[in-house]
Amino acid sequence: MTRSLMIRLALAAAAASVAVPASAAIEMAKKYNCTACHATDKKLVGPAYKDVAAKYKGDAAAAAKLAEKVKKGGSGVWGPVPMPPNANVPDTDIKALVDWILAGAK
């Protein structure tokens, strides 16, 4: 729990436009099971984060759209395998994760 608190503090400290430290984002991706299906540079069950970043490059609305998808789940964009909903993940964490992914998930 301490670790998650630290992440929250790190997030709170970060201004909206400033990315979360990569190590914190990776920790979150693990904590919320994202890495069960996703990796940065290769397709697992779900698409690679770098492919997601490439697809939405320059799309100003992407962050909001993806946050919605993470929260409510979806399917069809990357094939038939659905993304399960993640209603239990706090919005601030989703936003941090989406920003990290759109920045290339490095």
Binding site: V45, P82, P84
Partner: peptide, 24 residues
Amino acid sequence: QRGTEILKTFIKYGSPAGMPNWGT
């Protein structure tokens, strides 16, 4: 920790690591 929804995805669609796609 994974939860029902994620497990269902793996069981139904399989994974590139070798899990068969029992659903599809």
